[in-house]
């Protein structure tokens, strides 16, 4: 039975002082595959409009735009790119986790925390760019100045929740499959792997929706 490391991440190679872990390599491979697929779809939509690949490409672009327009209330192309990238990356990570010998990078707390910190940083940047520094800071005390600590706590805790939710879901799926493989055998955990894949897609969708909601709230304050 192979060693199951729950919280650790083995270092594969060192680039000088920089450790390159297994999750980093898997995430880079997933990103590379996504860029490759995007290139193929772009080629299809440029050369052969109307073909199956071109239709898939159109759907893949229009679906996040529709999602963002539904949540924010009006189309925001840059936010659609941001959230759509999250969805496709997390879904591709979940698919990659089903390959034999590959552990999904999102079952590593460092990876999910990095993604959540990206959302955490983007919210004030978008808010300040769309409404100005003064108005953005004023929305923290718009209800009451006593709410300021609570507002700050909620900014931190939702970032924490965003990362731990994704991490816990993906790790539990991985652990269940690993346990069943260790106890029973090879073909028995297939339904559980399908469930893991479904949960992975669902969590990717939820991560994209929640990041859209958080950033959309910073955008929307301008219109009120």
């Amino acid at each position: 039975m192979t060693e199951i490391s729950v919280f650790g991440d083995p270092v594969v190679l060192w680039l000088g002082q920089l450790p390159v872990t297994r999750a980093t390599l898997t995430a880079l491979a997933v990103s590379g595959t996504l860029v490759l697929v995007a290139g193929i779809l772009r080629h299809a939509i440029l050369r052969r409009p109307g073909s199956l690949l071109a239709i898939i490409a159109e759907l893949a672009v229009e679906w996040p735009e529709q999602l963002v327009a539904d949540i924010v209330g009006h189309p925001v192309p840059s936010l659609a790119v941001f959230s759509g990238t999250f969805f496709y990356f997390l879904a591709a990570c979940s698919v990659a986790g089903q390959l034999p010998g590959v552990r999904t990078p999102t079952s590593n707390l460092a990876v999910t925390s990095a993604l959540a910190v990206l959302v955490f940083v983007t919210v004030p940047v978008v808010g300040i760019r769309s409404q100005g520094l003064g108005r953005y800071l004023r929305h923290y005390i718009s209800v009451s100045p006593f709410m300021l600590p609570l507002e700050l706590m909620s900014e931190l805790s939702r970032t924490f929740a965003l990362s731990v939710r994704l991490f816990g879901n993906m790790l539990s799926g991985y652990l269940i499959v690993a346990l069943i493989v260790a106890l029973v055998g090879v073909f028995v955990p297939t339904p559980l792997m399908a469930l893991d894949l479904l949960i992975g897609f669902l969590q990717a969708y939820i991560f994209a929706v929640l990041s859209t909601v958080y950033i959309g709230a910073a955008l929307r304050a301008r219109e009120e």
Partner: peptide, 10 residues
């Protein structure tokens, strides 16, 4: 809501 159970799992 599920995330509270996931926090407990973690």
């Amino acid at each position: 809501v599920e995330s509270t159970a996931i926090f407990c799992l973690v």
